[in-house]
Design a protein around this nucleic acid. Sequence first.
RNA 1: GCGGCCGUAGUGUAGUGGCCCAGCACAUAAGCCUGCCACGCUUGUAACCCGGGUUCAAAUCCCGGCGGCCGCACCA
Length: 489
Amino acid sequence: MCNMKVDEIMDVALRRGFIFPASEIYGGVSGFWEYGNLGTLMKRKWEDAWRHHFLSLDQNYYEISTSNIMPEAVFKGSGHLEHFNDPLTACTKCNQRFRADDLITDACGKNAEDMTTEEMEVAINEENIQCPRCGGELGPVQLFNMMFCLDIGAAGGTKGYLRPETAQGAFISFKRMFEVLRNRLPIGIGIVGRVYRNEISPRQGFFRLREFNQAELQIFFDPDTFDEHASFDDVAGTPLRVRPLDREEEVEMTAGDFRDRYDIGRFYVYHMVKIQEFYLDALKVPREKFRFRELSERERAFYNKVHWDIEVDMETLGGYKEVAGIHYRTSHDLSGHQEMSKQKMQVNIDGKKFVPHVLELSFGVDRNFWALLDLAFAKEEERTVFRFPPRMAPITVAVFPLLNKQPLIEKATEIYSQLASIMQTDYDRGGSIGRRYRRQDEIGTPFCVTVDFDTLEDGTVTLRDRDTMEQKRVDENSLLGEILSRVAQ
RNA sequence: GCGGCCGUAGUGUAGUGGCCCAGCACAUAAGCCUGCCACGCUUGUAACCCGGGUUCAAAUCCCGGCGGCCGCACCA
C-alpha cells in the first residue's frame, strides 16, 4: 500500500521534474539525488518560508553563508574526526561487517564507545568474541569516517573535508559575527546549504542521502537565561504535541505545563512552540501527523543536554520520521573550537565573562520536501493531485485560453505576463481545457485562470480552485488581489 | 558491505537466442476538433543500464561494473 504510494509519487516526480537520480546517464550513484525545475522551485519556497519564519523570531537572527570545504583542524575542534566514525570489523571467513563497539558491549556489557581501535581489538581477543553469524575469526578494527576527505591545493597540500553539517560554519564564524552584531546576546546564525556524509549504505530512496541540504539556526545565549524568554507568556498557553520518554503515545500539554513538568528552560520551549507553528500553520501539516519526540540517552549525542526530534507521520515511510531537531548543545561546540584554535570564544557582557551556550534548530530540507510530497499526494478516481499549501506549490497559477483561438490567446498571454511578474505562473494552450486542468493538478498548482469570450466583452475571467475544482468569475483587475489573498490563507 | 531478486522510450510494460533496425498503453510535440474539467482525429519524437565474452546470430546466455527492491548490518 505505502510502496504503491512511493511509486506513484516517484512517477510524477520523475515525469514532471521534481527530483531525479544524480548522474543518471552514467547509471547514478546511490545516495545522490537532484532537483528538477519544479523541485527547485518548491525547495526554494520551503527554504524561504523557513527563513521568513525563524529569522524573524529575533532582531538578532541572521543568515550567513559559509564554506562547504573546511580544513581538518575545524573537524578536530568540532569532534567530528574523533566521533563521526564507526569502528568496523569484518569476519575473516564470511566477510560480514559489524560495529566493533556494539559487539564488545553485547559480549561483556562494557561501554566501548571511547575505546581506541587497539583497545577494541584487545577486548575482542580477551572476550573471545567471534563472528555472530558464522563463528569465524574477526579481523582488525578499522575506523570508517563518514566525512568526505579531500586535498586542498596541489599534492601535499592541506587536508580538508566536505562539511557534514552546516552548524560548524556558524560556530567558527561566531567570534566575528558576535562583533558584527554588536556584542549582544542572544544572536542567531542561520545557514541554509549543502552538507555531505559518506553513508556506508544509503537506503530509503530520497530519505537518506550522501549529499543533502540543511537549514540550521544556531542560537547563542547566556546559559543563565536558559529559563527566560521575553515572549514566553504569549505562548505559554499554546498546546504542544509531544511524545516524551515517559509516555507511550503523543500527548498535548500547554507550553507552560510542559516547561514545569519536564523542567526544560523557557528559552527552549519557546522555540519549540515556534517550530510547531511553522509546521502546523506555514506548512499546513495536519496536527495529528506532527509531534516532538524526546530522544533517549542512547539515541542522542553526549553533548546534547536536551534533545527532541520533530517528526512527521508519513505514509510512504511507514510512520513518524525525523524531519528536524531542537538541541541544547551547551558550550560544547564553542569550547571545542576554543581549545583547538586557541581563540577565545568567551564573551564579556556587562562585566560577565562566559562561553555562550547554543540552542540548535536543525532541519533536513530534503526530508521536509519529501514530507510535503507525501502529505499532499492524492490519487483520486479521475485525477492525480498534490494538495500543497498554495505557498509551497512550485507553480502558483496557470493561465489558459479556453480555446486555441487568436483573440483568446492574445488576452491570455497578456494576463500571463502580468501575473508572471509577481508570482510563479504557467501558461498552457495544449490539448483540451480539461487536460490542462489535470496537468496542473498533477503538479499541485492551486489556481488556474481561464480566458474565454466573455473576457473579451466584460473583462472577467474564471478562477478555478485546485481542491474543490470550483470556478468563480473574477474581474481581471481584481484577479491578482484575489489570488494573493487566497495564497495567504 | 553481504545474500536473494531485478534493470526494455519520460512512465508502466510485451518480448527468454534468429519472427525485434523491438510491440502496446499512458505521457509528450505539431496540427485538427473542442464555448470549462483527462480518456476524439492525424502525423511525429523517443528505449533494450554500461563494458567485455560465448555464438553464424544476443534485449534474451556468461562474467564484471553501476543502479534498484527486500532481508542482515549501518545511520556521531
